[in-house]
Simulated scan of single mutants.
Amino acid sequence: MAEVPRRGAESGPGWPEEPVVAAPRPDWRETLRTASDLALLGIVVALVSLPVVTVGAAVATASAALHTWIETGSWPGLRPVLRDFRRAVIPGILPTVLAGIAAAVLAVNLLALTRGVVPGGVPLIVVTAALTAAAGGFAGLTVVRLGQQGGPGWRDAVRGAAGCVRVRPATLLGTAGTVALATLLCVLILPPLTPILVGYTLFGLHATTRRLAGPTPS
């Protein structure tokens, strides 16, 4: 590792210069391994979510595992992951149903507006699209909070997300943009790669939240 000489704040005549050790950059193998891990994470989440009622548990468990990887540099073992998933199945059913209903209502309204079935024109389309993006961003922020608190506890995650938005409103814009971009890629450009994009979207949500609100938003 290269050492970059730098004079410390207390340095002066007679004081030795303090070397600063530059952090090594990850090589292509580490980058490829990270990309593969995230792709595999997305595929596993998609497969576990096939029964539909397990979507909430799958997302919560994946978010918690991803948070552990971000914090420690290693993924949790299979046994604790399965334990967390079992604990999250029942609490995750209601959030899954509510999220599905909300997504369906917003999607139907947006589709009806764009096709002219419902009057309102461009202004109402813009408002509905903005509400849809905000709802997606808040859902993404809630998923991040679930991971940061270890998986279970949807109410606490929602309260944490709401508190984060009050303190750092830009966080909602960041997570909304992440979800909107992922949705655009899945629907319009890369539908077959949707399972893989799930892992990258989760990582993007965690990275965006840490960037805009810090490691633990409040």
Score class of each variant (00 low, 15 high):
65 A>K: 09
97 V>K: 04
161 A>S: 12
153 G>I: 02
145 R>C: 12
34 T>H: 02
70 I>M: 06
68 T>R: 13
96 T>S: 13
99 A>H: 09
116 G>Y: 04
46 A>N: 05
214 G>P: 08
28 W>T: 12
37 D>F: 01
39 A>S: 07
11 S>Q: 12
163 G>H: 08
153 G>E: 06
8 G>P: 09
139 A>S: 13
135 A>W: 11
160 G>R: 03
217 P>L: 04
16 P>Q: 09
187 V>C: 06
185 L>I: 11
140 G>D: 09
64 A>C: 00
95 P>R: 05
138 F>K: 00
150 G>Q: 07
85 F>Y: 15
67 H>V: 14
145 R>T: 13
159 R>I: 01
113 L>D: 05
156 D>F: 00
8 G>T: 12
155 R>A: 14
134 A>W: 05
71 E>Q: 10
204 G>L: 12
147 G>Q: 11
50 L>D: 05
161 A>L: 08
138 F>S: 05
192 P>G: 11
169 P>K: 05
195 P>S: 13
113 L>T: 09
182 A>R: 08
97 V>W: 00
153 G>C: 11
209 T>A: 08
168 R>W: 04
210 R>A: 09
100 G>K: 01
162 A>N: 01
122 V>L: 14
139 A>D: 07
40 L>D: 07
150 G>E: 02
170 A>E: 10
46 A>E: 06
163 G>M: 01
198 V>R: 00
108 V>P: 02
203 F>Q: 08
2 A>G: 03
195 P>M: 14
145 R>A: 11
5 P>R: 08
197 L>H: 07
100 G>P: 11
170 A>Q: 11
88 A>S: 15
142 T>S: 06
186 C>L: 08
122 V>H: 03
190 L>H: 07
119 P>G: 13
81 V>F: 00
121 G>D: 04
83 R>N: 04
166 R>T: 14
123 P>Y: 08
155 R>P: 00
164 C>A: 15
152 P>I: 05
129 A>E: 01
67 H>F: 01
32 L>G: 10
37 D>I: 03
207 A>N: 10
73 G>Y: 05
89 V>E: 02
127 V>I: 15
195 P>H: 12
204 G>D: 07
213 A>N: 03
66 L>E: 05
78 L>H: 13
193 L>G: 12
56 G>K: 12
119 P>H: 07
88 A>T: 14
181 L>E: 04
17 E>A: 11
102 A>H: 03
35 A>Q: 06
29 R>S: 12
152 P>D: 15
133 A>N: 02
71 E>S: 13
39 A>W: 02
38 L>K: 00
144 V>T: 14
70 I>W: 00
204 G>F: 03
71 E>P: 00
83 R>A: 14
45 V>W: 03
202 L>E: 06
18 E>M: 05
58 A>H: 11
111 L>V: 12
28 W>N: 02
31 T>N: 10
165 V>T: 14
183 T>N: 13
27 D>E: 15
1 M>N: 02
